[in-house]
Design a protein around this nucleic acid. Structure first.
Length: 258
DNA sequence: ATGGTCGCGGTGCGA
């Protein structure tokens, strides 16, 4: 079974990429972030034609939005945090698929260091940790994936000296993300690939960033201990980052012997 | 080097 995650920066603008990539890579479950699409306009039919059978999505106009596309039935769909208001940014969707509890998140960007939104980013991460403490069992099969908007380690940044104290790599963000991980998660890319430097995001503002491989590893698939034991591979597919008019993110995939 | 490029939607904001 293959689970993938991809921040596609608008499902309508990237529909062809998602279809083409899905037909080639055949993930069983694909978690998307930044769909930027209201639910009534979510393009189910083209994605059905690409092989997906079941869908869960939570979107809004222009910003945020998360979705899960699956070849297996999705059960117990949870939209955002249980105590979120309806007006809350659409950033979390949790489903059960093949007995796995899968949580797909789009962690807030943070906008600017020291801003109110930066504090809200830290608070959102702490709140996610509390969700796992209160409602999840680490002895079960649990997967957390998505755009974490934090590069946890120096190995996850193309030039740590240049990124010191910069958004996505500040001490406070890394501490917050470590706090989340300590619930009992293993970073599957690091688990499988040891000290390898690979990235999932390259800045679209700087057109040469991808060619020069100046990126960050901010998109992740994390797993609980029993799920980590079943993981046979985890990799980043850079190919669609070179497509015409790409998302700024590349997909991450994990294979499990299930 | 504080620029640069997208997406949405028809303006400026967020990333």
């Amino acid at each position: 079974m293959i689970i993938a995650t991809w921040n596609i920066n608008s499902i309508t603008s990237r529909l062809d990429h998602v279809v083409r990539w899905s037909e080639k890579n055949r993930p069983d479950v694909l978690c998307l972030q930044e769909t930027k699409c209201i639910d009534s306009k979510f393009p189910i039919q083209p994605l059905r034609d690409a092989g997906y059978r079941d869908f869960a999505f939570l979107g809004e106009r222009a910003y945020n939005g998360v979705a899960v596309l699956s070849r297996y039935p999705l059960e117990n769909v949870q939209l955002n945090f249980p105590d979120d208001k309806k007006t809350a940014a659409k950033r979390l969707i949790a489903v059960t698929v093949n007995g796995i509890r899968l949580v797909n998140v789009y962690i807030p960007h943070g906008t600017a260091l020291g801003s109110e939104k930066f504090e809200q980013k830290l608070a959102w991460i702490a709140r996610l940790r509390r969700l796992f403490d209160e409602e999840y069992d680490r002895s079960k099969r649990v997967v957390l994936c998505g755009d974490l908007n934090v590069a946890p380690h120096e190995l996850d940044v193309w030039k740590p000296s240049a990124w010191k104290d910069k958004m996505h790599f500040t001490k406070t963000e890394r501490e917050a993300i470590r706090g989340l991980k300590r619930w009992g998660f293993t970073d599957l890319f690091r688990h499988i690939n040891d000290e390898q430097r690979e990235y999932t995001w390259w800045d679209l503002f700087r057109p040469s960033s991808f060619e020069k491989d100046r990126g960050l590893r901010i998109d992740h698939i994390w797993a609980s201990p029993s799920m980590t034991e079943l993981c046979t591979d985890c990799w980043i597919d850079r190919e669609p980052r070179a497509f015409d008019k790409p998302s700024d993110h590349a997909p991450v995939l994990a294979a499990f012997s299930i």
